[in-house]
Write a protein that binds this DNA or RNA. Sequence first.
DNA 1: ATGCCTTCGCCTCGAAGA
Length: 271
Amino acid sequence: MSDTPATAATATPFSIATWNVNSLKVRLPHLLEWLAEASPTLVCLQETKLEDHAFPTAEIKAAGYQVAFSGQKTYNGVAIVSRLPLTDVVMGNPRFDDPQKRLISATVAGPDGDVRVVGAYFPNGQEVGSDKYAYKLQWLAALHDWLAGELAAHPRLALCGDYNIAPADEDVHDPAAWAGQILCSEPERQAFRDLVGLGLVDAYRLFPQAERSFSWWDYRNLGFQKNLGLRIDHVLLSAPLAERCTAARIERHLRKKERPSDHAPVIATLS
DNA sequence: ATGCCTTCGCCTCGAAGA
């Protein structure tokens, strides 16, 4: 027997997820299905590719979730959907003037106090040495600088999103082929380590995981069927949240659905 | 292999993604 109140004992655990949906217009049915099935407390979405007036607020609210979003036509676009109220919503990085909608932050009530959630769609970079790669590194440096202050202000913080960085060779299906390439280059991996150095922990690596675990697979060449993937979507937790993290997994089965996103959601559970 | 798949916007092909 436990003296825990029944309401707490039966409550769904607090969980934080991230998913690059590659067009929320196309993937809304998948999202609604997954919200009903996995019941995450909160999900950060990337690549919504929707202007704010077109965001499917009513459909997501009908599923029992609140929304905050920052989008644009064709590219980028981020959102947070949450079963709990979202407060202090902030768009973008105040230290980095950027027309690309890649960042959204909000506060939710967590199991042991407020949690600050930062949802991020990191730049892809296209090719090492390109203008887009230079932008990616500048964006990463600005994120690091801003996040140091955010962590000081909000010690209970989660940085969730499509990082477009495979942090280590074990996160790459063919490390030799990808060595030095975009998503795997040393400056990108160093930027990832610099974020970790602020006091963040990769929730997925807190637990034993299957080898060759990935969150993205190329649409081409039967990438998913052959498991030719990369682990580039991450939930990073500050120490007080990492201490309470009890599980982390990749929702690989969503990649098997009809007309899937090329990314699968990543979800971390907190006690 | 400058390829493959998917999305969007433009206008049925190019750009971008990763």
